[in-house]
Amino acid sequence: MVVPLSLTDTPAVILAAQILSIGLPAVVAWLATRLLRLRARLARVRREMADLSADRDGILAELAQTRERLAESRQAAGRAQAAAAELEVRFKALPRIERQFGESRCETANRVIVEALRDRPQ
């Protein structure tokens, strides 16, 4: 009498099941170690990202301080230019004392005084 074999009782299926019973734990172990390595790498990358984020925040704070100092410097430069313009106006208002060729200091002073007295309104 011949007993009909079911699909799971065929030699090919039995051989495949035996191969999988040996190979599947190895594949699962390899995948588990790969997963653990990837988790460790992800944790390291997250730490690096946190460090980079902290560095970026520090740089942005320094940039804000630099911009503030730059604005202060520009204001100081504006004040210095205004003071220089004021001094230039005052300097131009001063009488020019030019010595003539061969003229002594006393003669120059005498000439400047005489010119100033002549130009003075009466």
Rank of each mutant, 00 (worst) to 15 (best):
V2P: 12
V2T: 14
V3Y: 10
P4A: 14
P4R: 13
L7I: 15
L7D: 15
D9W: 02
V13P: 03
I14G: 00
L15M: 04
L15I: 06
A17Q: 13
Q18L: 13
I19S: 03
I19H: 01
L20S: 12
I22K: 13
I22M: 05
G23V: 06
G23N: 09
L24Q: 12
L24V: 05
A26L: 12
A26G: 03
V28D: 04
A29M: 07
A29H: 04
A29R: 08
A29Q: 11
W30R: 08
W30L: 07
W30A: 11
A32V: 11
T33V: 06
L35W: 10
L35G: 11
R37Y: 03
R37I: 09
L38S: 05
R39N: 09
R39V: 05
R39W: 03
A40C: 03
R41L: 10
A43Y: 03
A43C: 02
A43L: 09
R44A: 15
V45W: 02
R46Q: 14
M49L: 13
M49W: 02
M49N: 13
A50K: 07
A50D: 15
D51H: 07
D51C: 02
S53Q: 14
S53K: 09
A54G: 05
R56D: 08
R56E: 10
D57V: 09
I59Y: 12
L60M: 03
A61G: 01
L63T: 12
Q65C: 05
R67G: 10
R69A: 13
L70Q: 13
E72W: 02
E72P: 00
R74I: 08
A76C: 01
A76H: 08
G78T: 12
R79C: 00
R79I: 04
A80Q: 08
A80R: 10
A80T: 08
Q81R: 15
Q81M: 10
A82Q: 14
A84D: 10
A84Q: 12
V89W: 01
F91A: 11
K92L: 09
P95M: 04
R96N: 08
I97K: 01
I97Y: 00
E98S: 04
R99T: 08
Q100V: 02
F101H: 03
E103P: 01
E103F: 02
R105P: 00
C106T: 10
C106I: 08
E107S: 08
E107W: 00
E107K: 06
T108Q: 00
R111K: 04
V112H: 03
I113T: 05
V114K: 10
V114D: 07
V114S: 07
E115C: 02
L117Y: 01
R118D: 08
R118W: 04
R120I: 09
P121Y: 00
P121I: 01
P121R: 06
